[in-house]
Design a protein around this nucleic acid. Structure first.
Lengths: 339, 339
DNA sequence: CTGAAAGCGCTAACAC
DNA sequence: GTGTTAGCGCTTTCAG
């Protein structure tokens, strides 16, 4: 069995209180005793029980990454993984305890965010994958525990949002396509009412209008951000609109771009020779597809890192809840042809 | 603030002990009071504090997924994600609390597995990504907390291993390639001393020898299981050995197969027309690459599920530590040409 | 500076 | 059946 604070106190010939003071680097203890206790603790391989610690102190150095829809979604891609990496990176650098929990629409109704935090003595969480139809969406607003959402604006005293200027970014991406001479552009869209979809749509429209272009309804291809859907829907689109249709596909995510490219290849077309395709997100694989995909890089890992950072600052009272808009950058690669 | 057991007791006009009995569904309590207490608890939105619970009861319904190398490895692919999904799936179905922790070589030296469990009052863990050079590798053996490793045999009273018969599976895969008429086969290998590499190598050799084939040293391409390495190494290989070389690439993982195909395409070859390629693992993307990759499906999600299952049974004393060998299946798709 | 003691929220004997 | 009470391992007053 692992040594407890009692064991260390006994071995060092001091009280548990003193050991606690030594372990937590308090000032009201003589350097000499601290040294000695630390020595003894090390020898005994003592590790404070985090659980007891947080129970007793009522505040914890534990944060969480909460994933919504992890088990439901067919695919979980680089995006979420990179975001997690960023969070874990920050946590490890700052000696925070971090763990990942999974929720779904059902568990959200059973247990509020605050209760989840309370159950595990978690100081706060970064939440991914929340849909605007999820129960948490409203309950977060009244939460006393700080949290940071990604790309989804919830509102409330204790909730921050880390995002990008998706409107501007998608505008840039669209403009790039236009600058390359594309006038007839299909939009491969994500879930109709998702916040990110709405923003990106707005960006696309801004660019199109500015350039006097139109986006007919039938050129908008809706998906739930799933690659396979892009694949099948684009295939269908090609059959319906044929060669005379568009010259480029503007995709709301990289996964959709990958699906689109698959559909195009399957139908016997070459990218970018026959059709140009652009993605959005900047996930790892876009650098390794054929062709390499032109996309908007969201610096996803940084996004995770900054989300954890902001959460930490909120917990410590350093920064208030806020919307953090991170920079993005257009990454030009090989999936667009100048026409 | 969230209600405590005290609050519920007071509101229901009973003692905390009784509330505890009601909440935990003990038998020595009248149905009537139980009902009433549950009612009150529900109304108050009471949720027991798991932390206090495990601290007091000394056993917890919390398990963990521990990832080694999550932050170091350039890529974290479908494989680990599917494994996690399986674990979380089991946990959720069985009302276990599950969370994910990340370790690396450094943190492994600072804190043993047992200490990590102790710190968080975790009953046990499924551990992924352990390298045979990692500090945990030895320390797990003496652990009192049960754990389940994936594809890596550690040994010890409390450690199980969930794996596949990689020797047989890789033998089958190789045999398939041979059956399709391939005699000159390059092996795209993983990390030289990794357990999985050794096993797969053995499988390949078994099949080759049985068929009177040779595997010259220069046809073995070593990587660290990274796609990009496969890409660059295979490209190099093609330059060195040219057209007259091999007719097929036998890859130790799907990611390596993807990298290999990329290299082949980049060098102007078609798959499977010019070269055949097979992968191993059965990750999601192999179904959606161009061409679809012939591979060995490990049923990765099941693997995660069964790992969590076994862990649970070990914790509950239902099953002892053991090596669980799960079935695999050859999935024939489009990346191999009959020659 | 250090020890003693109360208490975090809960469980698990032990009484009655 | 139910209440009472002693901890679980730790932090944090409060004395001295």
């Amino acid at each position: 069995m692992t040594a407890t604070i009692q064991d260390v106190a006994r071995a060092a010939g001091v009280s548990v209180g003193t050991v606690s003071r030594a372990m937590n680097d308090y000032s009201d203890i003589s350097a000499k005793t601290r040294e000695r206790i630390l020595e003894v603790a090390k020898e005994m391989n003592y590790r404070p029980n985090l659980v007891a610690k947080s129970l007793s102190s009522k505040h914890s150095r534990s944060i969480a990454v909460i994933l919504s829809g992890f088990l439901e979604d067919v695919m979980f891609n680089d995006f979420e993984t990179m975001l997690m990496k960023g969070c874990y990176q920050f946590a490890i650098e700052h000696d925070l305890d971090i763990s990942m929990y999974v929720i779904n629409t059902k568990t959200q109704t059973e247990k509020s965010y605050e209760q989840l935090c309370y159950e595990h003595n978690i100081a706060g969480a970064v939440i991914f994958g929340l849909k605007n139809t999820d129960p948490y969406f409203k309950s977060l607003e009244e939460s006393n525990k700080p949290c940071v959402t990604i790309d989804v604006e919830v509102g409330g005293e204790n909730v921050s949002n880390v995002t990008n200027d998706h409107v501007a970014a998608f505008d840039e991406l669209t403009q790039y396509l236009i600058d390359q001479g594309h006038k007839r552009i299909a939009l491969v869209s994500g879930r109709k009412n998702a916040a990110v979809t709405v923003q990106r749509f707005e960006g696309a429209m801004n660019a199109m209008k500015r350039n006097g272009l139109e986006l007919p309804k039938e050129w908008v291809i809706y998906t739930n951000f799933l690659k396979d859907e892009a694949d099948s829907e684009v295939e269908k689109f090609l059959k319906e609109h044929g060669e005379a249709g568009v010259t480029a596909f503007l995709c709301m995510s990289d996964m959709l771009a990958i699906g689109t490219i698959e559909a195009l290849k399957k139908s016997g077309y070459r990218v970018p020779d026959d059709y140009s395709v652009v993605g959005y997100d900047g996930i790892y694989v876009t650098e390794h597809t054929d062709p390499k995909i032109t996309t908007v890089d969201q610096n996803i890992k940084d996004k995770g890192y900054e989300a954890a950072h902001l959460l930490y600052d909120m917990i410590e009272g350093i920064r208030p809840a806020q919307d953090l808009i991170l920079p993005h950058s257009l990454v030009i690669r090989d999936s667009v042809k100048k026409v």
